[in-house]
């Protein structure tokens, strides 16, 4: 195999012992413990009770991020010191590739939920199919449409609605995010976000081309443009969420349309923020420290793969959450 010829087997990589894993564990467990307590205070706790949950969460996050910073820094230093063999670099490439694959599967779960609800559950609740008669008794008067303008709970209405929803309250939105709801095409924010994100994939590629031919200026400029586009994307998404909550009545509580909408776009937005942070770090490394050469720039390459992945997920979102 080709890679075995390039790998230098005499320089096998066995690092010294390292305290970073244990430190990262402490940070992670503190964050998790704090976050669980924050949520439980919110849902099950006494209103207004004094707790230190937030403090634990924030301290844990700082510890965790700090550890990751030290961890990545030492990895970068080892590479700059020439300690990394071609074989180890190949391991990093494989690691990043399969990590992105696992992220794809995470989104797959939410897309799967969306399709299942839209194709099967909705019509069933409205009385279709073999078990439809039963649902007709339970959710009388419910008509299925997508985006869902009236939840089954609202369709039932009256005194029964509270008990039948296990005391939940699912109030459907007045307006959906679909194209048909806006008065003019240029007021449709998802379209702008699509344009921005797709072009950011192009700009990050131009930056890569600059790096490959050793043009540092082109690399820094176009990477900077990419990070800026990412920021604009996140700002537009913030505006969209604000409108949804403040003007449309579209919230996490507004039935399965709101649930799937916010979970899919929210997790995607979180990944955009992660990808932007990764690219920003690469930009800082390049501008301040002159890192990366035309044949050794895995940190940037991995971030850009992640960025393309985030872009592809958005195309799926745009298609299945906004358009169809």
């Amino acid at each position: 195999m080709a890679m075995q010829e390039t790998a230098t087997h005499e320089e096998y990589y066995v690092p010294e012992k390292s305290g970073m894993a244990v430190s990262a564990t402490i940070g992670l467990v503190m964050s998790i413990f704090g976050a669980a307590n924050v949520l439980n205070d919110m849902t099950f706790g006494e209103p207004g009770a004094e707790t230190n949950s937030w403090a634990i969460l924030i301290a844990g996050l700082f510890w965790f991020v700090g550890t990751l910073f030290v961890w990545f820094r030492s990895t970068i230093r080892e590479n700059l010191a020439g300690m990394n063999s071609g074989q180890l670099k190949k391991s990093y490439v494989l690691g990043m590739f399969w990590f992105i694959f696992s992220e794809v599967m995470f989104f797959f779960a939410f897309f799967g939920a969306l399709f299942y609800v839209r194709v099967l559950v909705g019509p069933w609740l409205a009385g279709e199919g073999e078990a439809g008669a039963m649902n007709h008794l339970l959710w009388g008067g419910f008509e299925f449409e997508w985006p869902m303008k009236q939840t089954p709970q609202e369709a039932v209405g009256g005194a029964a609605a509270q008990a039948i929803a296990n005391n939940g309250s699912f109030v459907s939105p007045g307006t959906s995010m679909a194209f048909s709801e806006v008065s003019a095409w240029y007021k449709w924010l998802p379209l702008w976000n699509t344009i921005i994100l797709l072009s950011s994939s192009v700009t990050v590629h131009i930056a890569h081309l600059g790096l490959l031919k050793g043009d540092r200026k082109q690399f820094n400029l176009w990477l900077g443009i990419t990070v800026t586009l990412a920021l604009i994307f996140l700002y537009i998404q913030y505006v969209e969420y604000y409108e949804a909550y403040a003007h449309f009545g579209l919230t996490l509580n507004s039935g399965i349309y709101g649930s799937t909408f916010f979970m899919l776009t929210g997790f995607h937005g979180f990944h955009v923020a992660m990808g932007m942070t990764m690219l920003l770090i690469q930009l800082i490394r390049s501008v301040r420290h002159g890192h990366f050469t035309s044949d050794d720039h895995f940190g940037f390459e991995a971030s850009s793969w992640y960025w393309h992945f985030v872009d592809v997920v958005w195309v799926g979102l745009f298609l299945f959450v906004y358009i169809l």
Binding site: A165, F170, S259
Partner: peptide, 21 residues
């Protein structure tokens, strides 16, 4: 987690979701 703490309805038919999901 979202159903418990944030009022989503993935697994609640009253909001258009489904426990079978």
């Amino acid at each position: 987690l979202m159903d418990i703490h944030f009022g989503t309805s993935f697994f609640s038919a009253a909001g258009g979701g489904d426990p079978v999901l």
